[in-house]
């Protein structure tokens, strides 16, 4: 039996991704179990899901504690969540990251493969929903599932145009995934989990960064009212963003009536 743990953020589609992968593996004659963990249902918050793959019915109903493979749907998640915890020695990490496996901020007795799933998703879907792109890379680097079965499962989940777009994401990622490399002599980035459950620093959640042009801002307070994270304050009739609390949802950008908010991709 092979056990996989997925780390993502609310909104990246980790749960659906695991389910699609389970279906694809089922097409190849495997018995599978796709287990989501539901916590706070909040866009951007860290989420976990598990996948078990076996040749026969799987009886274990506990969670996966010692995965063979870890899949990370977000490049910065590793700074907050110990994503490689319990990973078997010699195991594999597949992470959404624009650089190579040795530069992805992870080190230890395992291998790391990367794929720039965020940009592939932006180019194929127009949104940073990284689940299908990461699955394409998963097929390539693990060899556990064929591209054909994966595409079939994607189209079953989203029949029609959305499915076609996701199939493109799968294919692009399949081509773009990097070979797994050894990182046993790499120093990983230190994990700094929130000090308490009330700590609200969400700056690492951003894929996009809003920026307010003070010249254009007319002080209408719309962004201030609609920001779900209460990250905007009004100072002298101008909106100001506190980036520690901004998760990059883009609502301020959508709401501003005069186009004073720009919204551009964060540089890693």
């Amino acid at each position: 039996m092979i056990e996989v743990r997925f780390h993502g953020r609310g909104g990246q589609g980790a749960v659906t991704g695991v389910r699609v992968l389970a279906t694809a593996l089922y097409f190849e004659g495997k018995f599978t179990q796709a287990i989501p963990m539901y916590g706070t249902e909040r866009r951007g918050a860290p989420v976990v899901a598990f996948l078990r793959v076996g040749d026969h019915r799987i009886n274990e109903r506990d969670l996966v504690h010692e995965p063979d493979i870890v899949v990370v749907l977000d490049p910065l998640l590793g700074r907050m969540v110990p994503v490689t915890e319990g990973l078997k020695e010699g195991g594999l990490v597949l992470i959404n990251h624009p650089r190579s496996g040795r530069e992805a901020g992870l080190g230890g007795r395992f291998k790391v493969a990367t794929v720039d799933a965020t940009n592939i998703a932006l180019e194929t879907l127009g949104r940073p929903i990284t689940n299908t792109a990461i699955l394409g890379a998963f097929a390539k680097v693990t060899g556990m599932v064929s591209l054909e079965s994966l595409e079939k499962a994607v189209l079953k989940q989203w029949p029609g145009r959305i499915g076609e777009m996701n199939v493109r994401a799968v294919r692009r990622a399949y081509e773009a995934a990097t070979e797994p490399v050894d990182v046993s002599n790499v120093e990983g980035v230190k994990v700094a989990p929130p000090r308490s459950r009330f700590e609200r620093d969400v700056s690492s959640w951003r894929v996009f960064r809003p920026e307010i042009d003070e010249e254009k801002c007319i002080g209408c307070r719309r962004c201030y009212i609609f920001c779900p994270e209460v990250a905007i304050t009004m100072e002298e009739k101008k909106a100001k963003i506190n980036y520690k609390y901004c998760k990059g949802c883009g609502i301020c950008y959508e709401e501003c009536p005069v186009g004073a908010v720009s919204f551009t991709q964060e540089r890693l």
Partner: peptide, 12 residues
């Protein structure tokens, strides 16, 4: 059946 453990877990 047990909630969460069965209700949301997908299997064939």
């Amino acid at each position: 059946g047990d909630g969460y453990i069965l209700s949301y877990t997908a299997e064939p």
